[in-house]
Amino acid sequence: MPIGRLGLPLLIALAFAGSRAALAAEPVVLMLKDHGFVPAEIQAPAGERFRIEVTNQDGTPAEFESSDLRAEKIIVPGGKITVIAGPLKPGTYRFFDDYHPDTAKGVLIVPERQAEK
């Protein structure tokens, strides 16, 4: 039975047929300076996919990492990266620079959705 041979291409074909969550237009902007995040606290809307832009202004490499946000990306000195996160439930999500985890850490806060009108 060629289940293995048929199943995989079928799955791959199906993979491209799905739909994606809406992406927020405005990215959340972060900066790494003196091995700390500026700002160290950011906000993002609940239930939406959004981008986080991180610029590394230090002279050494950094790695933007967060298991809460499922992000792990290296930033060269002077470099800028974008990661996509979410959709998130209201709550607090931690992130840090894996190369300077003691000083470079921050939180992303997703506030409770306000009642409509």
């Binding site: 993979a15 994606r20 992406l23 992000a71 990661v83 996509i84």
Partner: peptide, 14 residues
């Protein structure tokens, strides 16, 4: 997960 994390393929549930 890496490809879906960068929105290169659909995630089928995040």
């Amino acid at each position: 997960a890496i490809l879906a994390g960068a929105d290169l393929i659909p995630a089928w549930g995040y």
